[in-house]
Simulated assay, not measured.
Amino acid sequence: MTGFSLLPFFMIGLLGGLHCVGMCGGIVSAFTAVSKPARAFPIAVVGVNMTHSIAWDNVSRVFAYNAGRISSYAIAGAIVGSVAGSIHSLAGLASLQIAGYWLANLMLVVLGLYLMDVWRGLAHLEAFGHIIWRHIQPLMKHLLPIDNAGKAFALGGLWGWLPCGMVYSVLLTAMFTGSAVSGASVMLAFGLGTLPMMLGLGLIGSRLRVWSQQRAVRMACGALVLAFGVLGLMRASGMSAGYMDVFCISPPSMAAITPATSTPATLEFAR
Rank of each mutant, 00 (worst) to 15 (best):
L6G: 03
L7C: 11
L7M: 05
F9N: 06
G17A: 04
I27P: 00
F31P: 09
T32R: 12
A33G: 11
V34C: 13
V34L: 14
S35I: 08
K36M: 12
P37V: 14
R39F: 12
V45Y: 00
V45A: 08
S60C: 08
S71I: 11
A76R: 04
I79D: 02
I79F: 10
V83P: 02
A84I: 14
G85Y: 00
I87M: 06
H88I: 01
L90Y: 01
A94T: 13
Q97W: 01
A99H: 13
G100Q: 00
Y101K: 03
Y101N: 11
W102K: 09
M107R: 06
V109R: 07
G112K: 06
L113R: 08
Y114P: 01
G121K: 00
L122Y: 06
H124E: 10
E126N: 14
H130D: 05
I131Q: 08
W133Q: 10
H135A: 15
I136G: 01
M140E: 12
L143Y: 02
L144F: 04
L144W: 08
P145T: 03
P145W: 05
N148S: 12
G150R: 05
A154N: 05
L155K: 00
L158H: 08
W159C: 10
W159D: 09
G160D: 02
C164Y: 01
G165H: 11
A174G: 07
A180E: 00
G183H: 04
S185I: 06
V186P: 08
L195F: 10
G200A: 02
L201M: 02
L203Q: 00
G205T: 03
G205M: 11
V210P: 05
V210H: 09
W211K: 06
L224F: 15
G229H: 05
M234R: 00
R235K: 10
A236H: 02
G238A: 05
A241P: 12
A241Y: 02
Y243D: 13
T258F: 02
T258W: 02
A260S: 08
A265E: 05
T266D: 08
L267C: 04
A270N: 03
